[in-house]
Write a protein that binds this DNA or RNA. Structure first.
Length: 110
DNA sequence: TGGTTGACTAAGT
DNA sequence: CACTTAGCCAACC
């Protein structure tokens, strides 16, 4: 049943789908873009429901470029493998050259 | 109904 | 520089 919160989730999914390959963004960045700057956790929770969607949740990481959500994926290193497959260098569950790979919707998406 | 949890982030100690 | 506290808010028990 659709509710106001589903709308927020849908917005999160939509932004996540716009993330280019080889790029990543943060939960806070998406939340800020949606006007819910302080609800970064909700973005993460929304990602939890993105499993049934075509949302590249593996491109969404925390602000430090750390793959905090990798445990929610099937494998232990699936998230990392997906990102590396797109050209993102990851070491010890953390994205390297994050500045080069970071994609901020508030800046890039306008 | 109400307290705990969490894929976050910033600020404080 | 590592750990803690605080704020946020929906989902879960």
């Amino acid at each position: 049943m659709p509710t106001a919160t589903d709308n927020f989730f849908e917005r999160v999914y939509q932004v996540a789908r716009l993330i280019p390959e080889g790029k990543v963004t943060s939960y806070g960045a998406i939340a800020r873009y949606l006007g819910a700057a302080k609800s970064a956790r909700m973005v993460g929770w929304a990602m939890n429901g993105s499993k049934a969607k075509d949302v590249p949740a593996h491109r969404v990481v925390n602000k430090k470029g750390l793959l905090t959500g990798k445990h929610h994926f099937e494998g232990t290193n699936l998230m990392q493998q997906l990102l590396e497959n797109e050209g993102v260098e990851i070491i010890d569950n953390q994205i390297q050259n994050l500045t080069n790979c970071f994609w901020d919707p508030t800046t890039e998406l306008r």
